[in-house]
Simulated scan of single mutants.
Amino acid sequence: MLLSFALIFLVGITLGRIFEVIKLPKLIGMLLTGVLLGPYVWNLIDPTVLEISTDLRQIALIIILTRAGLNLNIDDLKKVGRPAILMCFVPATLEIIGMMLLAPRFLGVTLLEAAVMGTVVAAVSPAVIVPKMLVLMEEGYGTKKSIPQMVLAGASVDDVYVIVLFTAFVELLKGGTIQARDFLAIPSAIIFGIIGGVIVGLELIYLFKRVSMRDTTKVAVILSVSFILVALEQALNGIMGFSGLLAIMALGVTIHQNNVDTAQRLSNKFSKLWVGAEVFLFVLVGATVNISYAFKAGTAAILLILAVLIFRTVGVFISLIGTNLNKKERVFTAFSYMPKATVQAAIGGLPLAMGLASGELILTVAVVAIMVTAPLGAILVDSTYKKFLKQE
């Protein structure tokens, strides 16, 4: 296991740096590291590491979402208002509709299989988006119009929405039924997630005021509480909707709203943690990619992914109707909503594991979505934000 960790870090950092030198996002090098070291190419990662890779990726995601919450000013988000809410649902919904219209023609699947495929593909990747939006906020690009803040908030809720729909459609595909309460899990997961995060955030603020501790200790406490929130989501599954990841962001926002100085210091600590967590996250996501599936799907799957991205882009433009964003800013927002990675890696293989007839094809499309959109979205964001957004 130790050798695997060494390879993940050394090769991941090296390839990431090489891609940076040639003016490409370093996450592409990290994803490539995972593909090469993973079980489908060189098979150099210990199976024990792969068994716990979901938990390791979850930890990395918790770190970056906590950092996002600590940097997110809710007052900036209020300025955006309606578009921020629409960004949570409209782009993903149109992408799912696009998949239902096109997948039967491209891949010969049924309408219900296409719906499941759409929910697998539709989730934007917080792991790709959040770090990039934080860079924009730190450098002051687009912050006057709250563009990175809007994308941060939308991406976090987008995942909750899509995963609940995925669960419902898979149940139908298995021959079950969908009840109204299945869809009620969407608003309840969002509402209870935010409320839970705010309550925990207030309790932590009280604790930090009453008990003297170093910032490093505060980071350990916040991480531990965040792990509990994610575990709580799993424990409440089937009982009530609760988004642990959304609660983590709300926790960070609450700390920021009550003590900006503390939030900034803690954010700097989480930035240092992210240096290592980022490598783990993207290398392990890459390790889930079976490129033989991608080659099997071929051109049809790639064209399908690019086609449904058009539907998603239309959804972004619809969400931004009536805003003061200019044409370049709207295009940039659409670019930032393209990347897929973490959710696809997490749920793409579930239909196959459940024994569904279309499981392998759904996994193939999920893999192609990662390979096409993660590099494409990252490249477009990195290459356009200084040209399309105003720096404050």
Rank of each mutant, 00 (worst) to 15 (best):
L325Q: 04
M338R: 02
G197T: 12
T216H: 11
T217D: 14
G98H: 06
L303W: 09
A84T: 14
D46T: 11
R210A: 07
I59V: 15
E329G: 08
V124R: 00
R330H: 07
T177K: 15
F9H: 08
V80E: 03
E20S: 10
L361Y: 03
F192G: 08
I370N: 06
T364W: 06
V314N: 01
F208T: 07
D76K: 06
L77S: 05
T384S: 13
F5V: 15
L229T: 06
P148K: 05
I248N: 10
M213R: 03
Y206D: 07
A346Y: 03
C88S: 09
M99K: 04
L184G: 11
P339K: 01
I28E: 14
I45N: 09
G276K: 04
L107T: 02
L202W: 06
G175S: 08
L389V: 04
L65Y: 05
L389Q: 01
L363N: 14
Y206V: 09
I379V: 13
L65P: 04
E138H: 05
L2W: 12
W42Y: 09
F9L: 15
G142S: 02
Q58I: 08
I59L: 15
R214C: 04
A127E: 07
F295D: 04
I205P: 02
I63E: 03
L306Q: 12
I8A: 04
L36V: 15
L363A: 14
A250H: 15
R312C: 00
I13L: 13
D261K: 10
L266K: 01
E139Q: 08
A357F: 06
L61Q: 07
A378G: 04
E95L: 12
D215W: 07
L94W: 01
L245I: 06
M99Q: 02
P187Y: 11
K272V: 11
L2H: 10
S358K: 11
F242M: 09
A250V: 11
S4V: 07
K209F: 05
L134A: 02
D382K: 10
P126F: 02
A60F: 10
L202Y: 11
T254A: 14
T216P: 03
I97N: 01
A374R: 01
G238R: 06
S336N: 06
V316K: 03
A369H: 00
A114F: 00
T93L: 04
R181W: 15
I318D: 01
I228F: 12
T143I: 08
K386L: 08
M249K: 14
L15C: 13
G315V: 02
G241T: 00
D76F: 03
T48A: 13
E278Q: 12
F280D: 01
G38L: 11
V275G: 09
A231W: 13
M371C: 08
P104F: 05
A123K: 00
V219R: 07
A366E: 12
V121D: 01
V21L: 10
L86R: 10
D158Y: 00
T323N: 13
F89Y: 10
V157K: 02
F295Q: 10
Q344M: 14
G81Y: 10
L352C: 13
L27T: 06
T384K: 02
D382F: 01
L36C: 11
M213C: 09
V230Q: 08
S336T: 06
T262C: 03
S383E: 08
E138V: 02
V80K: 05
I62G: 07
E203F: 14
